[in-house]
Design a binder for these strands. Structure first.
Lengths: 235, 235
DNA sequence: TCGGTTTTTAGTGTAGACAGTTTGCAAAGT
DNA sequence: ACTTTGCAAACTGTCTACACTAAAAACCGA
């Protein structure tokens, strides 16, 4: 990386092994390499990663705090189980938080930022028509990310774009629960931007809530159908 | 509990040392024994607790995930710093989450539960008139706790009554930022209960939001005044 | 006396070893 | 055949020791 000139303008963050391991674990869970419900054997995983158990355990503790992992004393660590109920809970919380974020954004966002958002949406419109599927992923995240960011509320930002988002990503990989709503989502996004442009907090919050609420209902149904299909397969 | 026959029907939870240490640390932070900004020396603290550094470090990692502690690689661990901005951020998030909780409660709470809530309020009314100060503490918590609980949303509950609440408690001990609003708070609580009794989600959410918003504005002012006074003292 | 450089030292980061529990298996008893 | 009990292997929980990093102190030259 950065084979350019200069000394290397990269910030020397001096990440500790625990930080690295935490990220690797996180990615593994989110990517589905570690399936929900799966037991984690510390020694085995430590060997695979070429480290000792100490740092691994510390990384696990952190992810416990973020609810990606669950530990039972003297038994072991498991990847957090997924269920339609839990997904519904997550999205309800997200609805509350992002609704608030959008409300604040309506008062704080500059016109320049809103214009950027509109440009983003236009770019997304192309993806939708070409059904590249891109929009479902990072495109959607980008949209929500910018709104959260504009609040300037660090705590809120870290919840929406950090913890909560990671948790939701687990579901995305598990099945195609999210997505399949590209067109509707885009229209809802447009509505949100319109409210932001009008600097109308109430409308902005309502629009965001409706957007996430729709996603919640859609995801819930899709998840339950997928679960039913799984069950049928097992017969 | 259960001093009856049989061997002992108590659940043997077998908490690990890390669990115990986590709680002790948490209490120490919340109680103000560990002041915000204070550096924590692992070896020293481990000696004081009579344990080794391993479990202590794991406990610290957990509290990092909950944002009560902050670690800089190769530097050390500090108790999370407090600031009016941060408090404001916290309470904004709380407003969003508890507002949502209250909305759901309006549809889910049974009439029996609502009556209990009313009883609770009457009991509180006495405390307020006798200015025992009790209400500011566990009484208020109890009220909010019951509403969150009634949603049945485990994730939401754990945020409101767990993580967020702990964070806020740090501020309560630091200064008298919270409180001094017993009478107003009681009236606001009454308004919330009325909305719940009417099973009106919109009104319930609005009442809870107003309640927390008032607390936020009050706390912000109190905190800033206290900070200003501290500064004056230093002269 | 001051600025910069080297040395020291305290503290974090990591690894490895040991102890305590749990669980699965197998053998014995009913 | 089925339950029970004892054993053994495996894994988690904890502690100790060592390596590495960064801040502080001492030192030297101007």
């Amino acid at each position: 990386m950065a084979p350019t000139s200069k000394v290397s303008s990269e910030k020397i963050v001096a990440k500790s092994l625990v930080d690295v391991v935490t990220e690797r674990l996180e990615d593994a869970i989110v990517a589905g390499d570690l399936v929900p419900g799966e037991r984690i054997l510390e020694q085995v995983l430590a060997n695979e990663m070429g480290i000792s158990r100490g740092p691994l355990r510390e990384a696990i503790r952190r992810l416990e705090g973020r609810r990606l992992l669950e530990r039972k004393p003297n038994i072991g660590v498991r990847v957090a189980e997924l269920s339609p109920e839990r997904l519904n809970e997550l999205l309800t919380v997200r609805e509350a938080l992002e609704g608030m974020a959008c409300r604040i954004a309506a008062t704080k966002m500059t016109d320049a930022e809103i214009q950027d958002l509109e440009k983003l949406l236009n770019a997304h419109a192309r993806d939708v028509s070409s059904s590249s599927g891109y929009y479902q992923q990072s495109g959607d995240f980008d949209f929500h990310f910018r709104i959260a960011q504009s609040t300037g509320n660090e705590f809120l930002i870290s919840m929406v774009t950090g913890d909560l988002y990671d948790l939701l990503r687990v579901y995305r990989y598990k099945s195609s629960t999210m997505g399949g709503r590209a067109e509707e989502a885009l229209n809802e996004h447009k509505k949100i931007v319109a409210a932001l442009a009008a600097h109308d907090p109430d409308a902005a919050e309502a629009a965001m809530r409706e957007h996430i609420s729709n996603a919640r209902i859609h995801a819930k149904r899709a998840f339950e159908e997928a679960a039913a299909a799984d069950k049928a397969d097992a017969s």
